[in-house]
Amino acid sequence: MADHAHKLEIFRGLIKFKSNTQKIWGVLLLLTIVTAVEVALGIYKPEVLMSPSMTPFERGLGATLLNIIFSAFIYTKSLNLIFIVLTIIKAYYITWDFMHMRDETKALRRLVVWTAVFLICYLVFILLQEGGYIESVYTNGYVKRDF
């Protein structure tokens, strides 16, 4: 594997490392910073981030569509949204640099990533939607939780 070439730039070429080893330490630094930010936010839970950043649109089909498009901002606490985004960033760098996805062919990359991302999004959407529906039945449907 002597001819094994590594792509050494991250952030779309903003940072270019001199060697693969250096890149590994750079990515470690990045992952550590992201984790530290997550932990700090998780401990202090800033008051501003504890509610969704947008309020739902009201009235009409347009409002419904906008609610769906901006659902991440309307129905998720900003803090949780930040956590999820940071997690995906971490997942990206683990896959791309530690698992060398960056060096694989485009076809292999898409084969793996698109399949997983599509199926996971599908599954998560269905289950969370259903969970929310059941919650609404519990809350509004005269189901007693203590008897």
């Binding site: 996971i120 998560v124 289950l127 969370l128 259903e130 969970g131 919650e135 519990y138």
Partner: peptide
């Protein structure tokens, strides 16, 4: 996702 389902439920 199942965890999320149960959590959304409660």
């Amino acid at each position: 996702a199942a965890y999320g389902f149960s959590r959304f439920k409660f």
